[in-house]
């Protein structure tokens, strides 16, 4: 059986900075993959190239056996690629329900009635049923993060790309989101999850990839990757070229998170 998502030699440069340097990566059906790496490692850029928001300079993106490198984001969404943004971007003036409904209608291609049903069940699944008729712009950060996941689920994805859904939340809030993701994982949805809050990842994913300087420097079970010398070195920041120092997250802070 072929992999659900395959990246072959994905390369992207912004001027002199190489944010993706010939990345090869594959994600199987129903697999949950976590991606970690210091800020500036190219994690979000990689997501954008998978979702179709950004075109790679070189390389190929294959989804479910078909080459999708030249298809736009809307087409990839309809094929079954769902994505969340690191900073939630709901349609502010629409209700929570409408936000998910447009996804069900256009992303999943459902007729009206089935769209309503999917939107209702997705909101229940993400714990937003009580907020369904609120204007999305009025939500709290946790609720916005939930809506970001709900809207992506509304497109009925076969692969869900989660970009730091736990970022900026308190510990109990992170637990709530992790529970949602774990439930999704339980029903066989393939997930690729970028996260700085590593313990949220390790409890959920079966495989972890560490990205630094546009290259994969670790790939394996969470325990293997976190124990590897290359990964620890990047997080310790002893090799400044491989790991551009993150201004708001110091190396000891990150190491603390890793070891927690």
């Amino acid at each position: 059986m072929t992999a659900l998502l395959e990246l072959a030699g994905i390369t992207k440069r912004f001027g002199l900075v190489t944010v993706a340097d010939g990345i090869d990566l594959s994600v199987g059906h129903g697999e949950a993959l976590g991606i970690v790496g210091p800020n500036g490692a190219g994690k979000t850029t990689l997501f954008s190239m998978i979702s179709g928001d950004l075109a790679p300079d070189d390389g190929e993106v294959r989804f479910d056996g078909a080459v999708v490198t030249s298809r736009d984001a809307a087409a990839r969404c309809r094929l079954g690629l769902g994505r969340t943004y690191q900073v939630p971007r709901p349609f502010e003036d629409m209700t929570v329900f409408e936000n998910v409904l447009v996804a069900a209608r256009y992303g999943a291609g459902l007729p009206t009635r089935a769209g309503y049903e999917l939107a209702t069940s997705v909101l229940a699944e993400t714990g937003l049923a009580a907020q369904a008729n609120l204007r999305a712009g009025a939500l709290t950060l946790l609720q916005r993060k939930r809506l970001e996941v709900a809207r992506a689920l509304g497109t009925r994805p076969r692969l869900l790309l989660l970009d730091e859904v736990a970022g900026g939340l308190t510990d109990p809030e992170v637990e709530e989101l992790v529970a949602i993701v774990r439930a999704l994982r339980g029903r066989g949805l393939a997930i690729v999850w970028i996260e700085h809050v590593v313990r949220a990842l390790t409890s959920t994913v079966d495989r972890l990839v560490c990205l630094a300087g546009g290259s994969i420097i670790g790939d394996g079970t969470p325990a293997e990757v976190l124990a590897s010398a290359a990964v620890r070195e990047v997080y310790l920041g002893s090799d400044p070229e491989a790991a551009p120092a993150a201004p708001e997250r110091t190396a000891p802070d990150l190491l603390g998170k890793l070891l927690r």
Binding site: D72, A74, R89, M94, V102, Y106, G107
Partner: peptide, 19 residues
């Protein structure tokens, strides 16, 4: 609704399948 969504955030609208 999709007109409003696209008007609000064209990029996010493509992520829900809107052309």
């Amino acid at each position: 609704r999709i007109v409003r969504a696209t008007s609000d955030d064209p990029e996010a609208a493509t992520l829900v399948g809107a052309d």
